[in-house]
Design a protein around this nucleic acid. Structure first.
Lengths: 255, 255
DNA sequence: TAAAAGGATTGATAAATATCAAATCGCACT
DNA sequence: AGTGCGATTTGATATTTATCAATCCTTTTA
């Protein structure tokens, strides 16, 4: 990877506490690559060869079966993804696709598995990441089973607002088509849902969201009672066209 | 805990590789309790005080919101549960309830967190458990989003069959009401689903399932292409009325 | 053993969601 | 600025799923 990038990445929660020796070995064997938007990084079913760390940009994790297709989660920087597949040495369960131009750190899975055994700090960081990811999926599953579509939309908007420090004005990341898939509905119904939410104190114009009456929206959406602490996120990370120097697009840039 | 039980529990994947010293400390501070059926062990939102290990019996993990209520997963022996809440020191996201009489090992969360730092083998076991649980939830979420109700039933039956070594004849564990909730539908629709599956090579009488035409059922249900290895499970564990000496029902029996 | 209670099934209806088609909007590209 | 393309919205309809009510069945209890 390029000089200047290394310290930035070494500061990530996953690597911050590692011993320098192991970190060096890990980083020496890893690639920081830049990928163009809309590129499939790997497909479900493939053996997990690399742990991925999204440094910049935005990645969609999806699953499909029998022609149908759904977005399971959106990865925002700075987060690792498919850690579970790497540590269990099993095939990916999800397909990964960049939404915007993205910088991704690729770490050989075999080496990661080896280093986990050797570095306690890395081990602990892995545990934290897995546990957080686990809890996120539990929430998502409960959300899907317990709420109907318009409530899910309301909840999603409240969550986005929370992540932006309670802002009542923000942009939706990505396309609505994908948001609909993430929330488990069709684009048509997402659109109608936004319409219905006007009566609950929200307005959406294009990708611009305004929460006019938070109390009302909360009463309608019944948000979860318990949230895990919110990490600081790069709010603009998922904006399509976010400026990352791409070099020659599509060409991997080994570290 | 009672003598004779300890070796059995020490053999569990979670503890098998630990150093004896840490294991002793952990076990000395833990309780093996027996709980009657239908007992709520803890509620979502409570701080995670104990790591639970289901040794015998069957436990339901559920979530609720706004009066609605859903079963998220069924824990079968021998498995730990709510490990993610314990390692992150966060409130439980799910409510736990015994389905049948159950023996559960309760390990103080604080101590578990401490020992994870000290014992590499325990750490690794925690990582494995978390990763497996994570992948299970990913699958469940994809199943719910990608398949409609009758397909989910078919898939569930195929999975149960797999877990019983491919048996084409087996009993459904627990009540159908709960199975319906687990599969994200109403009991009425579960019942109708069983009816529809007759045409796809399955027959259900009471809790007795017979897969008459596996090929046909698979063609209909489109099972996942990739499965993680199946652990050996105690198939009778969830049978209501499984024989565990209860002492005075409802009274915890400290180890 | 009869009664009662709760679970499971069945049928009828309602609500939620998806699908299909058409119109509109927004934006990139001449 | 005009054009074209895809995304979004809107409307009409079909499908899926939930709800409500009644009945059947099994198990528990008096």
């Amino acid at each position: 990877m390029r000089p200047g990038e290394r310290p930035e990445i070494a500061r990530l929660p996953l690597f911050a506490e590692m011993r320098e020796e192991e970190r060096s070995r890990l980083f020496a064997a890893s690639f920081l690559q830049v990928f163009p938007p809309e590129l499939t990084l790997f497909e479900a079913g493939q053996q997990a060869d690399f742990l991925h760390v999204l440094v910049d940009g935005c990645v969609e994790l999806k699953a499909s079966n029998n022609g149908r297709d759904t977005t399971l989660t959106i990865v925002e920087p700075v987060r690792s993804f498919i850690l579970a597949a790497v540590v269990t040495d099993m095939p990916y369960l999800m397909t990964a696709r960049t939404l915007s131009a993205s910088r991704i750190l690729l770490m050989p899975a075999e080496l990661v598995r080896g280093l986990i055994h050797q570095d306690k700090a890395l081990m602990m960081a892995v545990i934290r990441e897995l546990a957080n990811g686990y809890r996120e999926f539990v929430r998502t599953l409960a959300d899907l089973k317990l709420r109907q579509s318009t409530e899910r939309i309301g909840n999603y908007l409240l969550l986005q607002s929370r992540r932006r420090g309670g802002a009542e004005n923000f942009q939706l990341p990505g396309e609505k088509k994908m948001l609909a898939s993430l929330l488990g509905m069709t684009p048509e119904n997402l659109s109608r849902g936004f319409g219905a939410l006007v009566a609950e104190g929200v307005e959406v114009h294009g990708s611009q969201v305004t929460i006019r009456d938070r109390e009302r929206l909360e009463a309608f959406s019944r948000p979860d009672a318990f949230y895990d602490p919110v990490e600081n996120r790069d709010v603009n990370a998922c904006k399509v066209g976010a400026s990352i120097s791409l070099g020659k697009p599509g060409r991997p840039i080994p570290g």
